[in-house]
Design a protein around this nucleic acid. Structure first.
Lengths: 172, 172
DNA sequence: GCGAGATACTTAACATGTTAAGTGAATGCG
DNA sequence: CGCATTCACTTAACATGTTAAGTATCTCGC
């Protein structure tokens, strides 16, 4: 074991850089993607054991903190797009982990809440999840973790209102 | 400043916190997800105009820096899973943006390279992409950006070899 | 009140993420 | 050699990301 399967011979490519660009592997999006994947890799197995995906878990967590929410608000909280949320809610409802009822005042809105079963499932997952988070904090350092999150928040804020496109309001 | 994470007197939801957990919206995975989305939101419209998705763009960028690579190595570089890459390469090849040829020495491997057309497309996208990156850097600050990326790298490294599960080597 | 427009979702369609299984080609070992 | 194992990829199947279109409901001006 620990055998090198294939030696590419070249430690690094001889490079034929034909288009001038930053080193791709060091771009901000890639850094963020890799960091997030490194973190999520820790959680996924545990969630999987409980039959939950990352997104389903996000939804349950968001619901556990409140009585009930509209779908749109839940989408914002769990950071999911409407269509994704719509599908997931359908499945979670079929599994009796959440409940839905249309609002009285506005028949368009539907109020979502976590069910007793959903709470039970959460209670069974939470300890492991918290332990993993604690281990990550221990490894990386609580102070640095707080700093990192602060920077991420700043980054987010500094890009707010720079909507990439179709952000032209009241213009033609 | 230096506000405690869990403010009991939060002006947010009436709270029916039934399962003890961290404030979900401030978890590390969510911070990373939101930050990355804030960044990618800037690039997607431009890529879309050129008929490229984020992942296709990653592949082209990775290919532009070298002569040719095996699929597995490309997957590592572009941070894509094999199946995703396999599909995308099929499409990029159909659009004549890349070329493939099986290696002589090992018929299993296929060497992928960017085509002349692919390079032309890249050249047409790169300026806008670089401009967006520059604007992000300007807004957030070059120094802070470097710091952030350093921290993200540290986070990644500190979690390496903590494979969440099925990481048990030489065991049964 | 009523019809145009706005809202809150949902469906649809296509691309990717993710895991498992399949296929053909090399390798290692008896 | 023979053949089980390993490799490098590809397919398959299901879940989500992403954009566009559809549906029912509500709001508002006239």
């Amino acid at each position: 074991m620990t055998k090198k399967p294939t030696e590419p011979a070249n430690g690094h490519p001889p490079a034929a850089r034909q288009v001038p660009m930053r080193d791709f592997s060091r771009s901000l999006p890639m850094s963020l993607l890799r960091a997030r994947e490194a973190v999520m890799r820790q959680f996924r197995p545990s969630l999987r054991e409980h039959g939950l995906t990352e997104q389903q878990w996000r939804i349950l967590r968001a619901l556990a903190a409140i009585e009930a929410v509209e779908v749109t608000e839940l989408a914002r909280t769990a950071f999911l797009l409407g269509p994704s949320l719509s599908r997931i809610l359908r499945d979670l409802e079929a599994r009796n982990l959440i409940e839905r009822k249309t609002a009285k005042a506005d028949q368009r809105r539907s109020m979502v809440s976590i069910s007793k079963e959903g709470l039970k499932l959460m209670a069974s997952v939470a300890p492991t999840s918290e332990a993993i988070y604690a281990e990550i904090t221990r490894r990386f350092g609580a102070r640095k973790l707080a700093e990192l999150q602060e920077m991420l928040g700043e980054l987010e804020r500094s890009l707010a209102g720079l909507g990439g496109a179709d952000e032209t309001i009241a213009e033609e």
